[in-house]
Amino acid sequence: MHAVFVNGKFCKDPEQVTAKDFFFPGLNVPRDTSSAVGSNVTAVNVAQIPGLNTLGISFARIDFAPHGGLNPPHTHPRATEILVVVEGTLYVGFVTSNLANGDNRLITKVLNPGDVFVFPVGLIHFQLNVGKTNAVAFASLSSQNPGVITIAKAVFGADPPLILMF
């Protein structure tokens, strides 16, 4: 028998597939938000659910600490994201880049429970808890492996350091 390798993952023989290949438990459980940025992202992609391979979708739960919990500016190079707030109040937005006139434009909105916002593929975006209580949002992404590039870590955390000379 030959293994089939698709999208960087091995495809399981259909005769060997079980419910475990399509299951992830516990997204109802609040996550620890005591990180430096006051948020915690629980990704559910092909690494957690092998059955997502080739299906073009993934999911995430984002927990935010009260007043200031931040999912810092980042991008998903391979996916559009749609976010729904289920608890709390979030200030969200994205930055368009390199418009025809050379400008970059900030698009923002304050979201409450039940509100939905879309972040187009590849654009830098963020979420910030502006409420006095915890906030929780769920995101769906249009790739089984959307990737994430956190802007500040990429620019200021490079090894060796990024040094720009003028």
Rank of each mutant, 00 (worst) to 15 (best):
V130E: 06
H76C: 09
M1N: 14
K20W: 03
P72A: 07
H67F: 09
D21L: 08
A100W: 00
D21N: 08
P160H: 09
F22W: 15
F166I: 07
E87V: 05
T89K: 15
A137Q: 10
T18P: 01
L83T: 13
N98K: 11
K109T: 06
H67E: 14
I151T: 14
S58I: 06
S35Y: 05
G114K: 09
V84G: 04
S142F: 03
I82N: 00
G56R: 14
P73E: 07
I124P: 10
N7Y: 02
N112E: 07
E15D: 11
L106V: 11
F24Y: 14
P66I: 04
D32T: 07
L83G: 01
K20T: 04
V130S: 04
A36I: 10
N104M: 04
P25A: 12
N104Q: 13
A152P: 01
L111N: 02
V155L: 14
G131R: 04
F23M: 12
G68W: 04
L106W: 00
F59W: 08
T96S: 14
T42C: 11
K12I: 09
T108F: 02
S97T: 11
P30M: 11
V37A: 10
V136H: 05
A47I: 00
K20P: 00
S143E: 10
Y91P: 00
I49F: 02
L164C: 10
F24I: 00
E81S: 09
N71G: 05
G88T: 07
L99S: 03
N71T: 02
G69M: 09
F126Y: 14
K109S: 12
F24W: 08
F126N: 10
A43G: 00
Q144V: 01
